[in-house]
Amino acid sequence: QEALTASVLADAPPQEQKQMLGERLFPLIQAMNPSLAGKITGMLLEIDKSELLHMLESPEFLRSKVDEAVAVLWAYQA
């Protein structure tokens, strides 16, 4: 699978960009949190795309954002 870079993304329309990022992020998030992966991915896709690209490159950064999203989700549902 070709690497998803800023230049590849820039060629796609904005809505498509989030779709592409979501398709890449979802399996990584699913590995961390299978039951909430869809909602977490949905939350993270609201973030700026430069940060989303960083998440694809840095598992530590992704994990920190996933943890953040889960905390927000739990607070919201409480």
């Binding site: 809505q15 989030k18 779709q19 398709e23 869809g38 909602k39 949905g42 896709l45 609201e46 919201y76």
Partner: peptide, 22 residues
């Protein structure tokens, strides 16, 4: 219901509509 509408859930292979108001 409005309670279940957030957050939008991403599903692989399904076009992402996100939170944009279209």
């Amino acid at each position: 219901s409005s309670h279940a509408s957030w957050p939008p859930e991403f599903q692989p292979g399904v076009p992402w509509k996100g939170i944009q108001n279209i």
